[in-house]
Write a protein that binds this DNA or RNA. Structure first.
Length: 213
DNA sequence: ACCCAGGGTCATA
DNA sequence: TATGACCATGGG
């Protein structure tokens, strides 16, 4: 909680997840942002929106080659076209948003993990930001931050780290959502060293950190 | 010319 | 269970 307060003080509320059209758009973004800069995801989502295709029935029916054209800016477009199609088919077959909302968090998580292309992080993005469930998202930035802060090694299994956060924090989806967003904001921030670079956000410690300044 | 990005799947040992 | 190859565009 001390770490959370420091990040909040440094970067301010992040207001994640950025989406204009509700939960389904969050889910689409969660699949498309896999190992991909968010700015590129926005382009693809805007292209889909402009074409009136940001909707499960349309996406599920769209030929993969055509969907891949929309997804070009996100990279891995052939892979992600298949994943997005698989997700939309699951979404429709499951009965849509209202039906999914009725599932408890554990059951919903299991269903999401069963979809091709949805791994633990993507599933938890969806649970947290689309369904408002108190599930803590672990990503590469979280691992790096924990390692730099000396709070963990960073290479622990996904579930172990998720459990650790959820044990240490009250089950508050608003808190988890801000926390994860703040960790990402910190990772993207420039390293402004004051007085030392203990928690240097850069992927590789910056020059000041290496020289021990 | 690198390196990285709000990961996951699949084959191999 | 634990690596490694693979996917591919756009910005620094």
């Amino acid at each position: 909680m001390a770490l959370y307060r420091r990040l909040l003080a440094a970067y301010g509320p992040q207001g994640w997840w950025p989406a204009r059209d509700g939960p389904f758009e969050v889910m689409v973004g969660a699949v498309l942002t896999q190992n991909t800069a968010w700015a590129n995801v926005e382009r693809a989502i805007e292209a889909l929106r402009a074409a009136g295709a940001l909707e499960p029935r349309t996406l599920a029916r769209m030929p993969p080659a055509r969907l891949a054209r929309f997804l070009r800016p996100v990279g891995y477009f052939n892979v992600k076209a298949r994943r997005l199609r698989a997700f939309c088919r699951f979404y429709l077959e499951a009965g849509g948003l209202e039906a999914l909302r009725r599932l408890d968090t554990a059951a919903l998580r299991a269903r999401l993990l069963g979809v091709h292309g949805v791994g633990p992080e993507t599933a938890d993005d969806i649970l947290l930001y689309a369904f408002g469930r108190p599930v803590f998202v672990i990503d590469a930035y979280t691992r790096r931050l924990l390692a730099r802060q000396g709070l963990a090694r960073g290479d622990e299994p996904y579930e172990a780290l998720r459990a650790a956060f959820e044990r240490a924090l009250p089950p508050d989806a608003g808190l988890y959502g801000e926390y994860h967003a703040l960790i990402v904001a910190h990772a993207k921030a420039r390293c402004r060293v004051r007085p030392a670079c203990e928690g240097c956000p850069a992927r590789r410690p910056c020059a000041r950190a290496r020289s021990g300044a």
